[in-house]
Simulated assay, not measured.
Amino acid sequence: MMRTPTLVMDLSAVEEAYRRFTAVMPSIAVHYAMKCNPHGEVLATLLSLGCRFEIASAPELDRLRTLGVDPSTVLYSNPVKPGTHIRAAYAAGVRCFAFDSLEEATKLGALAPGSNATVRLNAGATRSGVPSEGKFGVDPDTAVRLLVQARSLGLRPFGVAFHVGSQMLLPQAWQPPLVAVRHMMQRLADKGIFLQMVDLGGGFPARYGVTPPPLESYAAVIERGLAALPYPVRAVVEPGRAIAAEAGTLTATVIGTAFRGGKRWIHLDVGAFNGLMESLETGNELRFPVSDSRGSAIRDRFTLTGPTCDSQDTILFDVELSADLSTGDLVHIGTTGAYTTVYASTFNGFEMPTVRCVSGSRPVGAAID
């Protein structure tokens, strides 16, 4: 019998998602955002396909190096980094660093001299499915000024990056920041600075209840924006969720049922604090596809909640499952390959999900946490 909670990652689905990006955006380099799922076999699969990577810390780089990733191909996109991480990444061979403040540029000039500096632009106020913007990024005027200052600090003004927010369902969200980039490039050219890279970030969505716009719609907006730039640049994207999410299925065991306030409750051995934190982050708006081991024809509506004593630990409301679901049955939660194990804790002493990789239906090696 399967030990739960268990996250099963289908590596063939990871491959399919990556190949989709390279087919639809053939002129744009894909750098997988490893923060969403850094499982060793996921990373190895992407590496074997020619994928590059984006990191937010030196330990993430260490994990990539154990797989044989060339650090010189890695983007360090976290705009504010500990000095020790900058020093370690630079010593390993990373040469492309993001920043969005003069203090960070000063740190980079001292700890990563001569590196390629990419300024983080605020992408605007478009709301994404998993709101994640607001912490980083500056307006275009400040971005231009920072790149000029970076040059004076011994850095190479290399590019501009932005992120429209996670689970972005509006392809047009990429248009305003690309217009801003165009104007920045024109102004920087007058100062003798010619950018070489535009980092379009992540934000590409996965299927949670509804089917998002096709990737082709995003590519069309991006390609128009890139074509309008005053001169050609290298373009990169940093997908995470769109690569890994749909490859994952999280299986949990029903540990109890209850009838409260006119509603039926199903308590699982996985919840927000040990694998499904995004249910809290989104106010339970992410509609993970759910099925169960009974598969009964008679259905009912349930609230799915986790095992802890915290009342916030609830995953989904009004979920249709088998009416006779009971303790010991299994519940399968789809589109959980991204931001599950990385957010998981042992709060209240409950276990984090184990990870098992398959290719289609075939197991692949031993699980690597």
Rank of each mutant, 00 (worst) to 15 (best):
A247N: 10
L268F: 15
H267T: 14
G262E: 13
K263E: 15
L188M: 04
Q186H: 07
V270M: 12
L250S: 03
M277P: 02
E216D: 12
A258G: 08
V236G: 02
D199S: 09
I255Q: 08
G192H: 09
T253P: 00
D190K: 15
L170I: 14
A180Q: 15
H183N: 09
A180S: 13
F259H: 13
A258I: 06
G203Q: 05
A173P: 00
A245Q: 14
R241N: 12
R260L: 14
P171K: 01
M185K: 10
P176D: 01
G261W: 06
G262Y: 13
P239A: 04
I222R: 01
P212I: 08
W174G: 02
P232S: 10
G248F: 08
T211R: 14
G202W: 11
V221H: 00
E281I: 06
G256E: 10
G240C: 06
V181L: 03
F162E: 06
A161D: 10
F259M: 05
G283P: 01
A272R: 03
T253V: 03
G283F: 09
F204P: 07
P205Y: 04
L226M: 08
L195V: 00
A258V: 08
T257A: 01
Q196Y: 01
V160Q: 00
A244L: 08
Q196I: 04
T253C: 10
I255W: 05
D269K: 07
P230W: 05
L268R: 07
P232Q: 00
I266D: 00
A247Y: 07
R264S: 09
G261M: 13
H163T: 02
V160F: 01
E223V: 03
E238V: 14
R234H: 15
S217P: 05
K263F: 10
P212G: 02
I243C: 00
G248W: 08
A244P: 11
L215K: 02
V179K: 10
Q186S: 14
N274L: 00
T253D: 03
P171R: 01
F158R: 06
I193F: 06
M184F: 08
G256S: 08
R182M: 05
E281F: 12
K263D: 11
F162W: 04
Q175L: 08
S166V: 09
Y231T: 06
I255H: 03
E216C: 02
G275T: 11
S217L: 14
L215W: 07
L226D: 10
L280W: 02
L195Y: 04
D199L: 02
A245S: 14
L229C: 01
V198I: 11
F259N: 10
V210A: 13
L170A: 12
N274H: 06
H267R: 15
A244Q: 01
V210L: 14
M185Q: 09
V164W: 00
M185F: 09
P214F: 07
E278W: 14
